[in-house]
Design a protein around this nucleic acid. Structure first.
Length: 118
DNA sequence: CTGATGACGGCGC
DNA sequence: TGCGCCGCCATCA
């Protein structure tokens, strides 16, 4: 049966793959926190790992701009070019960005519930 | 092995 | 809301 998933091993390369998959699964117009992505990837408590993976990512197709800090703030210094680009890409998605911050969906929303079976 | 670093998170004030 | 402190994880000097 496929009922059992392998135990989460953060050090294995597939961890990064799971993270990338979780990020790719965030639909346009929506956003998620680093910690949320980590959980969706089966790596609870590895928010910083998500950040690490993203920092090494080169795929322009990856919706990296939809990943924000838990408080809805963009994780870049407000004066950095990355910050500016993330702002643009978010708005291109139709997301409202106020002062480098967006309205992050509550974790207990339906969408989150579907994603995080626990 | 110890200490520093980073696209983090939660809590307290 | 803003800020600081501390905890956590993985990597690197």
């Amino acid at each position: 049966m496929l009922t059992r998933m392998p135990k989460p091993a953060a050090s294995m390369p597939s961890a990064a793959a799971a993270i990338l998959a979780a990020i790719r699964a965030v639909p346009r117009g929506q956003v998620a926190g680093y910690g949320t992505i980590a959980r969706r990837a089966g790596l609870p408590g590895r928010a910083r790992l998500v950040a690490r993976v993203l920092s090494g990512n080169t795929d322009r197709e990856l919706p990296w701009h939809r990943i924000l800090r838990s408080d809805g703030r963009i994780a870049f210094p407000p004066d950095s070019p990355a910050f500016a680009e993330q702002c643009l890409r978010l708005r291109a998605d139709g997301v409202e960005v106020r002062n480098g911050r967006v309205r992050l969906p509550r974790e207990d929303s339906l969408d989150a519930a579907v994603w995080s079976p626990r």
